Amino acid sequence: MMNFERRRDRFELFDSMDSPAVNLSFTLELPDFRPWCKAQGLPPFHVLLFAVLNAVLKVENFRYRIFEGEVIRIDRLTPSYTVVNQHHDLNFAQFAWSDELREFVARSLAARDQASNMAALNDTYQGMSPRECKNQVFVTCIPWLDFTSIQHPAASLGCPDVPSLAWGKFRYGGNGRLQLPFSVQAHHGFVDGYHIHQLAQTIAAELKQLIQ
């Protein structure tokens, strides 16, 4: 937590505000990993989810949370994301982490199928303890839209310590590059614009390493 202690004064500044969230939308540039996914028989969304969540763990500022009034640093993540069910309502897919890509994707697909086939809201997250809830990052994908901004819901405006991430429609950017709208919401006491830049660069690096 030494790195956090260096910015505790920044944390206290933003945490005292009614809404300490920073919310930034931008065009994320990535290596076009879709041909590799096709060759490997892997769905691009789930491969990108794997890369994004690994990047979150590698950028320390995205691992800080507030629990029982104290700042903590999480060591693991419980993957979850939104899906659309048969009635075109959202639901939540949640599953156990795996460090191995194919196992991660298999678990993600099983969670997607379970959640998308449910009419009622999947409330398995309610079985998590308050501490376990801090191991989340809220993820949503809006593949139909090339959005330019987004407002993420927050259970408490005063405590947006669990980051919210969203991305939209892929488009080919030329020269083997992929572009997509990407949004990050986080506690400004933990995350600045520089750390969002770090996250973007780390996601690209994670994908580059996978496809090589």
Rank of each mutant, 00 (worst) to 15 (best):
M17P: 06
M118Q: 13
F104C: 00
S16T: 10
N3M: 10
P163Y: 01
V184K: 02
H152F: 15
L28P: 14
C159N: 13
R112D: 00
R10E: 07
P153S: 06
Q179D: 04
K58W: 14
A115L: 05
A106Q: 07
P181I: 13
G176E: 05
M128Q: 07
I72Y: 09
S164G: 07
A110M: 06
L24N: 13
Q201H: 11
A111C: 00
F170V: 03
L57V: 14
G193D: 07
R10F: 09
P163T: 02
G41I: 03
R73N: 07
L210F: 09
I196N: 09
V56W: 04
H87D: 14
H87G: 05
S116E: 06
Q185W: 06
R7N: 10
F92R: 11
S19W: 05
I74S: 03
S183Q: 08
H46K: 02
F182C: 04
Q212Y: 10
R171M: 03
V184D: 02
K38G: 00
H152E: 01
S156E: 14
L90E: 05
P20C: 04
F45S: 01
Q209E: 06
A111M: 04
E68L: 05
H152V: 00
L53E: 15
S98D: 07
A115T: 00
L199M: 07
R73M: 07
L42Y: 04
V52M: 12
A120I: 09
E5C: 11
W36H: 02
L90C: 13
R73Y: 05
L48G: 01
L30N: 03
F26A: 14
S149Q: 14
H87S: 13
H195M: 07
C133M: 13
T124I: 08
R177Y: 03
V184E: 14
Y194W: 13
R7D: 02
Q40E: 12
P43I: 01
A21P: 11
V83I: 07
L121K: 09
E206S: 09
Q86C: 04
G189P: 07
V162L: 11
S129A: 01
F92D: 15
H187F: 08
L57T: 08
Q201M: 10
A106L: 03
L24V: 14
S25R: 10
D9R: 15
N117M: 02
Q185M: 14
K134P: 08
D15P: 11
H152G: 00
F33A: 04
L90H: 12
R73G: 12
H46Y: 03
T82C: 13
Q40M: 12
Q94M: 15
N54I: 00
A51P: 02
N85D: 10
A204C: 10
G176I: 00
A106F: 05
G69N: 09
S19G: 06
C37Q: 02
R63H: 15
K134S: 06
R65S: 13
W36D: 04
M128Y: 01
G158K: 05
K169A: 01
I150Y: 12
C37E: 05
E29T: 12
E132R: 00
H152R: 01
L157W: 01
A200D: 08
F26K: 05
C159P: 02
S80Q: 08
R177L: 13
S19H: 12
V191H: 09
S183N: 13
G69L: 10
S149G: 13
R8N: 09
P163M: 00
F11P: 01
G174E: 11
R63Q: 13
G168H: 01
C37K: 02
